[in-house]
């Protein structure tokens, strides 16, 4: 059985995604795999909000700028986490629909393993409430690992030499 050679972690700024990043760094270190961190600026959602008239045009532009800054900040943070453990990280940010961008990058980069943060604890039966990360989990062609238990993952990350 071959080990993962290319790992992708999806980062969206939530605590769960940072936990996923710590887990992915541990795995990349253990398997000596390439590690990519992806942040997606969800322009699809913003377009939907503009259509629904929840967003104004200038509000959409403002949020887009905020999200660009968020992308850089969170990717830099994950990069620092990786550097501390001697793991090199490829930072990627893209724009569009989150699940599509994840699926595209997995295919484009021949990713073996996608690492994501914990999904919503309570799931509704309403189809309307599924989230983008869950859609990505269902649609990607590679295996998916869901990082859970922030404290345990932190300990695992901290114990990594």
């Amino acid at each position: 059985m071959s080990t993962p050679r290319k790992i992708l972690v999806y980062v969206d700024g939530t605590e769960q995604s940072i936990t996923a990043a710590q887990y992915a760094i541990c795995m990349a270190s253990y398997f000596k795999a390439d590690l990519i961190a992806l942040y997606v600026i969800n322009t699809k959602a913003m377009e939907d909000l503009l259509k629904a008239r929840i967003f104004l045009q200038d509000e959409q532009i403002e949020y887009e700028h905020d999200m660009e800054a968020d992308a850089q900040r969170y990717l830099n943070y994950v990069n620092e986490l990786a550097i501390k453990k001697g793991v090199s990280l490829i930072q990627r940010s893209s724009r569009g629909s989150v699940h599509k961008e994840i699926v595209n990058l997995v295919d484009e980069q021949n990713v073996d393993l996608l690492v994501i943060g914990e999904l919503a604890r309570i799931r509704s039966r309403r189809d309307e409430l599924y989230d983008e990360t869950e859609r990505a989990m269902r649609m990607v062609s590679c295996s998916v690992l869901i990082a859970k238990d922030e404290d345990k993952v932190w300990q695992m990350y901290e114990s990594l030499v």
């Binding site: 969206d12 700024g13 939530t14 942040y39 600026i41 969800n42 959602a45 913003m46 939907d48 909000l49 629904a52 929840i54 967003f55 949020y63 905020d66 999200m67 800054a69 968020d70 900040r73 989150v98 309403r126 309307e128 409430l129 989230d131 983008e132």
Partner: peptide, 16 residues
Amino acid sequence: NQSGPHVEALAEIVKL
């Protein structure tokens, strides 16, 4: 600094 989750939550409300 959490525009991403904010936008996604608003989008979920629209769908709901």
